[in-house]
Amino acid sequence: MIFLRKLAGLAASLPILVLPTAQAAVPQLTVYTYASFVSEWGPGPLIEQAFEKHCNCDLKFVGLEDGGALLSRLKLEGKRTAADVILGLDTALTGEAEQTGLLQEHNITLGSINLALPWSDLLFVPYDFGYFGFVYDSETLPTPPGSLEELVHDRDGPRIIIQDPRTSTPGLGLLLWMRKVFGTDDQAAWTALAPRIVTVTKGWSEAYGLFLKGEAPMVLSYTTSPAYHRQVEQNNRYQVAMFSEGHYRQVEVAARLSTSSEPQLAQNFLRFLLSDTVQNILPTTNWMLPSVRTGQGLPDAFRDEEVPERMLQFDSLEVRDQRKQWISRWLIALSR
């Protein structure tokens, strides 16, 4: 320990290694979130600016790798956590987050807010949501499959790149989607699909990167992905295949912590997340659908036909209890 302290002292003398220290005086609100939320292209910087304008506080984002890392961090720190708010868990993880007993009810009357999705959870506030979907390259794949059923059982169907449910959120999303559509026949469905899976990657970035390189005409991503290409790149090439069974929904949520010394400020922040200001920022920075119907509506790049008509989702507690077993089934099916 002494050795590490000495090293820490050494670090202090190296200006390059010193992080900026926060100003005191005003109360500080620490928000744990995932990295891309706070990156310079994400919504973080804009939200911070907008919130600090009125709160007389210092909003500090702590960016971790992804939702999984967020939950790990919370569990590692336990009651010692510095977080006041945790932002960026999705519905596949909320069940486990609840189990930590570190979260506090938000006490926000969600009924008074014009939510775009039904929601009544007492701990978690949904700030945006999206649907998993297969994005395809319209130049190499003029007619994509119209359903998951077709994708799985058409032997001459397009080849796809997916993510690993053991290491990534979309990967887990597809696992749940398949389970929802095929029920206990999920293993047979996976086996039927297997020959057309080019590869299974660690995370979304690897898969999408390979897809953009043309390694497969289709990739597991989000239904909102084409909106990015239209809005930022003015590119209509990449489309999402809408499936008739419906799409698995991912809701991103935030919650405050019972250990927080600023419970009121934390609640204000959660309420602020549902304000029109933040909700208008989210679509074109986080590339997800806003959870509140704002007066402004969605940007032009988002299209109505890319919003699934049917929503599929498991209860988060069921996901928590079944996940391991379902992943084993997936492993067996794909290992054949």
Partner: peptide, 27 residues
Amino acid sequence: AVVLTLGGGPNATTVEVAIYQTLRFDF
């Protein structure tokens, strides 16, 4: 990451992948 990305499927899993999975998703 090399093994997962280019391995083509979950057959190609190293102990390191299992460790990541255990730490990150199974906590």
